[in-house]
């Protein structure tokens, strides 16, 4: 069963949503629109970064063992490095995170964003996420 993933107000107001699940990991999707527009005709790099970060955090949420009292463990971003490989065209963007290592307190996560072809990512990120206690 897929573990619950909660997207924050920031993600919801930009239109980020769970598009589908891939082997227990949420794949986020977001349509292009004025709210994510950067230079004319392209996604804003900051919006792409925020999207990658949400995919990374969602992957950690999905990977965490639920606590006994089912309280949610708070996740805090420590840092992120984003690389931009291609411009984001005026169409739907997808992203998925991959938990490389889940420690007791820190998760190392990577994330990729793509449009038409998953094997041609437009941007990727490396992120450290602190896992708090509920």
């Amino acid at each position: 069963m897929n573990r619950p993933v909660i997207l924050p107000p920031y993600a919801l107001s930009l239109g980020f949503e769970i598009d589908h699940w891939d082997n227990g990991v949420p794949v986020l999707g977001c349509d292009f629109g004025p709210r994510v527009l950067g230079r004319p005709g392209f996604w804003h790099g900051g919006a792409i970064s925020g999207f990658l970060e949400m995919a990374a955090v969602a992957a950690v949420q999905a990977a965490l063992e639920p606590d006994d009292d089912s309280a949610r463990r708070p996740l805090k971003p420590v840092n992120i490095t984003v690389e931009f490989m291609r411009g984001g065209q005026e169409k739907r963007l997808y992203a998925i995170g991959r938990v490389i290592r889940e420690g007791r307190r820190l998760a190392n996560v990577s994330a990729e964003a793509w449009q038409d072809d998953r094997s041609r990512p437009i941007a990727m990120a490396q992120m450290h996420v602190m896992i708090g206690t509920a």
Partner: peptide, 24 residues
């Protein structure tokens, strides 16, 4: 603004808007 929060209760700003701010 509330729309930019990482958490509706605390109102703490999400990190995404900070990246956008700094990139710009």
């Amino acid at each position: 603004k509330a729309e930019l929060a990482a958490d509706a209760q605390s109102g703490v700003l999400a990190s995404g808007p900070i990246i956008s701010l700094m990139d710009t």
